[in-house]
């Protein structure tokens, strides 16, 4: 069994009486594109700051490829690439100068640096950009941020909210870059944007108020936690059917669109027998009855949204 890329054991971080992280256990398999999902203030950035050595844990342990980040910081940092949520660049440098500088901190030789800087500028779509970074758009800076995080060909790439402040085009560009890394390196990707996770990640952990409330491959998570959905398409009297089903104790929500009802249910067995009976009783005529798709958003809301 291979060593996890990231392993957090009982990790806690306190700021006075506030618990930013509360006894977090997490394991990120090597080679995965891992979504670290949570609402703002859940503790995602704090976790990344501890993993990169920018902050110290109050208790517990953070390991990267089996090595504690607290003990041998520089050795761990040699193997990781990191993009903070708001990357700060030297505005007087060009993109190529920054990549060369970043590579020099890893002790890369000149030929390797030349080759990698060229390839990464190409990946970031900045090859023909010779302006100073001070004149870059937010999207260009974020793409350069991903590129600089890859200069050492890291075994683990950690990205903190890489798309949160981007416009749709910038978001697509950065997500495409991340998706292109799948299978080449482990990506640990923190975000509160669910659609980004669904698009590029294969495994996800959900963090809420400093605690991991779920961790699994996305499909497992949907089937395990997501409330079941059933779509009922009828020919007539949809209002009567809606009223009847909404009164059932196993129906937690009903959405109606024309003659289609989407039911969020808590008891699949009860629904299987009761829905056909309700259709007959209301004489609606059945066109379609099928399972609906559970989104990560449904899982997220179920896990962290209930008490908000």
């Amino acid at each position: 069994m291979s060593v996890p890329a990231i392993e957090l054991t009982g990790l806690s971080k306190h700021y006075g009486s506030f618990r930013a992280l509360d006894n977090v256990d997490l394991s990120v398999p090597e080679g995965s594109v891992f979504g670290f999902l949570g609402p703002n203030g859940a503790g995602k950035t704090t976790t990344l700051r501890i993993l990169t050595g920018l902050a110290r844990a109050s208790s517990g342990e953070a390991r990267v490829f089996g090595t504690s980040v607290a003990d041998v910081g520089n050795d761990v940092r040699s193997r990781i690439g990191f993009l903070p949520d708001v990357p700060g660049f030297y505005d007087w440098m060009t993109a190529e100068e920054f990549l060369r500088f970043a590579g020099s901190l890893f002790g890369l030789s000149a030929p390797v640096l030349h080759e990698r800087a060229g390839a990464l500028l190409d990946l970031a779509g900045l090859t023909d950009v010779h302006a100073k970074i001070g004149g870059f758009s937010r999207g260009m800076k974020q793409r350069l941020g991903v590129a600089q995080a890859l200069i050492n060909a890291p075994s683990l790439l950690m990205l903190d909210e890489p798309t949160s402040a981007l416009d749709p085009i910038g978001r697509k560009e950065v997500l495409d870059m991340i998706a292109s890394l799948s299978g080449r390196t482990t990506v640990f990707f923190s975000t509160h944007i669910l659609s980004d996770v669904e698009r590029v990640c294969d495994t996800v952990a959900i963090l809420d108020r400093g605690r991991v409330v779920a961790q699994a491959p996305i499909d497992d998570l949907k089937s395990r936690y997501g409330a079941q959905k059933i779509v009922v398409d009828v020919a007539r009297n949809v209002s009567g059917l809606e009223r009847r089903l909404a009164a059932e104790p196993w129906v937690s929500a009903v959405e109606r669109e024309n003659h289609t009802l989407t039911l969020t249910i808590s008891d699949i067995e009860a629904a299987r027998s009761a829905i056909p009976a309700a259709v007959v009783a209301e004489d609606t005529g059945l066109i379609r009855l099928e399972g609906g798709e559970v989104s990560l958003e449904d899982v997220f809301v179920e896990l962290v949204g209930g008490e908000r």
């Binding site: 520089n74 990781i80 700060g88």
Partner: peptide, 17 residues
């Protein structure tokens, strides 16, 4: 200065002591 501008974070997450 570099701490406030955020550049220190990009630098110090690389292997520089």
């Amino acid at each position: 200065g570099e701490r406030k501008s955020g550049t220190a974070i990009l630098v110090l997450t690389k292997p520089i002591s």
